[in-house]
Design a binder for these strands. Structure first.
Lengths: 234, 234
DNA sequence: ACCTGAACACCGTTCAAGT
DNA sequence: ACCTGAACACCGTTCAAGT
């Protein structure tokens, strides 16, 4: 977290009396950023509204002047992550490369925040959400490349589904699938350990391997499909 | 829900006094099945332990004789769904068709239960879990077809990630991505409505279209990759 | 407009008492 | 061993009072 987003109240330790402060302390954005930082620091427990208030040097009830409820905090987090993804994804004239860059930035942003993945995929988009803008850019590229309008939407959603599932996988405890001492599943056990060793040898996580292989296959399959029955616009 | 799994206590309305009943009323499995039914009936709110108790004709505290906590109820749900998937997936000698059948059964089982998706991907597998057995079957087929042990694991995880992400998508409110009255995202808006109309015309959901397209592409890409640099075992 | 302090509501979990 | 009844703990949310 950058110093710029650190609430001044964390430095100033003196208790504040009731009443409106001269300069505003909180904002929806600051609350979202702080919540995201808390999720980063403590991965599995999630944050409480009281944690959030303490980190902001404020009482819990103050938060409700800026967000309707806890779900709204998650919505704000989604906006922040969406903007981060948008900023990182460098535009690429080739639709498949653009999708790939987007997918990588997307997964990276969410893998660090498992608790947000389920929320993200369930909450309706806000009007004027940045997410919508990103979709528009990708949809344009896909349609220009020859995908039909309906297909372009399916392609985006399919890649997004793969990314979100992969983010869940990447955020799961590393030993989640560990067959342990079981002897009744030898091929699975062998596969599990082989992937783990391969990942270690390449200096990445097992989840990274599955993501890379899956994304490559998915994009390759999409390229093939476009080539097979597309009608390029020019 | 079948009559066989319906708790007798739902028929017998008379209040029960304290003390051990002659015949056991609850079991871990029955609790899991009932929780799953509650999730089916009320999609978004999730179930409370008190709901669960009422549905079983029992007091809340009784549940804790059979499950450690609410998370354990979700773990039991996962086992139930896993067995259901296993039962439905008919074996197929071709690895890609087997994966496809598995993916469809998997998504169908979880799309109806959004709340379980996030849990499922985070909870460690129980020893002797049915999930492990399913992995073993798939890993065997993949390795016999020429995939390396490490790759076979990545393939399974990649398909699973796509399935889980798609299940999240399928369980989201249908208007989640609706651009509404926005005029700044014309290509996205066009794509959104085109997909919706195509889905309506084909009698499926928009989520179904994206899932079908993505799964086809993913499997096609995997087939290609195996053909390109595989060393079949025979 | 925006913060404090106190209260309320909800819900998961525990535990002694009872058979 | 397994159910009841009552209590506790935690946490999200509300609201009047204060500047």
């Amino acid at each position: 977290m950058s110093a710029a987003t650190k609430p001044a109240s964390e430095v100033d330790e003196r208790p504040r009396s009731a009443g409106r402060p001269r300069v505003g302390i909180l904002s929806r954005r600051l609350i979202g950023e702080t919540a995201l930082r808390l999720l980063d620091e403590d991965r599995d427990t999630g944050f409480r509204m009281s944690d959030l208030a303490r980190a902001l040097g404020v009482r819990v009830s103050s938060l409700y002047n800026h967000v309707e409820n806890k779900a709204a905090v998650f919505a704000e987090i989604r906006e922040i992550l969406a903007e981060r993804i948008d900023g990182e994804a460098t535009p690429d004239p080739r639709w498949d490369r653009a999708l790939r860059t987007w997918a990588h930035a997307y997964r990276a942003a969410f893998a660090a925040h498992p608790a947000t993945v389920a929320y993200l995929s369930t909450l309706p988009l806000d009007a004027n959400s940045t997410v919508g803008t990103a979709y528009d850019h990708l949809a344009s590229q896909l349609q220009d490349a020859g995908w039909s309008a309906a297909e372009s939407m399916s392609v985006i959603v399919a890649v997004e589904s793969f990314v979100l599932g992969s983010a869940l996988d990447a955020s799961a405890p590393p030993d989640m699938l560990d067959p342990g001492q079981r002897t009744d599943v030898p091929r699975f056990s062998g596969a599990y350990h082989a992937r783990r060793e391969l990942a270690a040898a390449e200096g990445v996580t097992p989840a990274d391997l599955a993501f890379a292989l899956g994304l490559d296959a998915l994009l390759e399959g999409l390229r093939l499909r476009l080539g097979a029955h597309a009608t390029p616009s020019r």
